[in-house]
Design a protein around this nucleic acid. Structure first.
Length: 216
DNA sequence: CAGTCGATTCACT
DNA sequence: GTGAATCGACTGA
């Protein structure tokens, strides 16, 4: 008999720590997206850390802009960006405030509201693929730029909330280079920024960064 | 102000 | 395994 996931909201202090400390601790936690049609809950299985202005791979590397402003704000808020002309990806901002670090939510297991997620993820061949990949995850949860800046630690009825869930024991946590990030995985790469749950079928496959060929 | 390319996914071969 | 889709943020002139 396995204990049910803890529905207690994560306090803001959880996110007000160094991003490399928060990221592995996020695995097994539950993100609840409350839509007009009902809730969708996701157990996080794969995340990636981005450490603000000190991290060339981060959107915050070159300082604040209109797009990344939320990253420079208080921890526990959601940063959503639009990419490749058609997808959204979501992050959780980590502290301390002003550090502009964040954690990209790359994959998870839908544990509630799968029927709602399937409506958005028509091309998913099975439920393991509903949130297998950062853009798929955002699509499954109906997250777009309208959700940018939402506080995932606020009390009351909110569109996004982080719950305690069931943290993954550290011996089940794996780490490695980030996926699809320029300059990642090379010689000078010292940090394992990406964390996932060992042997979890919802974790997305690793892909090295590929510079896109110029259009003719 | 034009050029470049992205923290990706999907359809095909 | 390869290439297309698609648009807006950012860069540098």
């Amino acid at each position: 008999m396995i204990a049910p996931p803890d529905r207690t909201p994560l306090p803001r202090a959880f996110f007000d720590r160094p991003v490399l400390e928060v990221a592995p601790d996020l695995l097994g936690r539950v993100l609840v997206r409350t839509t007009p049609d009902g809730p969708i809950a996701l157990r996080l299985t794969e995340v990636e850390a981005y450490d603000g202005p000190n991290d060339p791979g981060s959107h915050a590397y070159r300082g604040p802009t209109a797009r990344n402003a939320v990253m420079f704000g208080p921890p526990g808020h959601v940063y959503v960006y639009f990419t490749y002309g058609m997808w959204h990806c979501m992050n959780l901002v980590c502290g301390p405030e002003g550090r502009a670090s964040g954690i990209l939510l790359r994959a998870g297991e839908v544990v509630e509201g799968a029927e709602l997620a399937r409506k958005r993820r028509v091309s998913a061949r099975n439920d393991k693929e509903l949130a297998k990949g950062p853009a798929r995850l955002a699509t499954a949860l109906e997250v777009d730029r309208a959700m940018d800046g939402v506080d995932a630690c606020a009390s009351g009825e909110t569109p996004l909330k982080m719950l305690t869930g069931t943290p993954v024991p550290s011996d089940q946590v794996r780490s490695g280079p980030r996926t699809g990030v320029a300059g990642e995985g090379g010689d000078g790469d010292l940090h394992p920024w990406r964390f996932w749950v060992a042997n979890d079928p919802t974790v997305s496959p690793y892909r090295a960064h590929v510079p896109r060929r110029r259009r003719s």
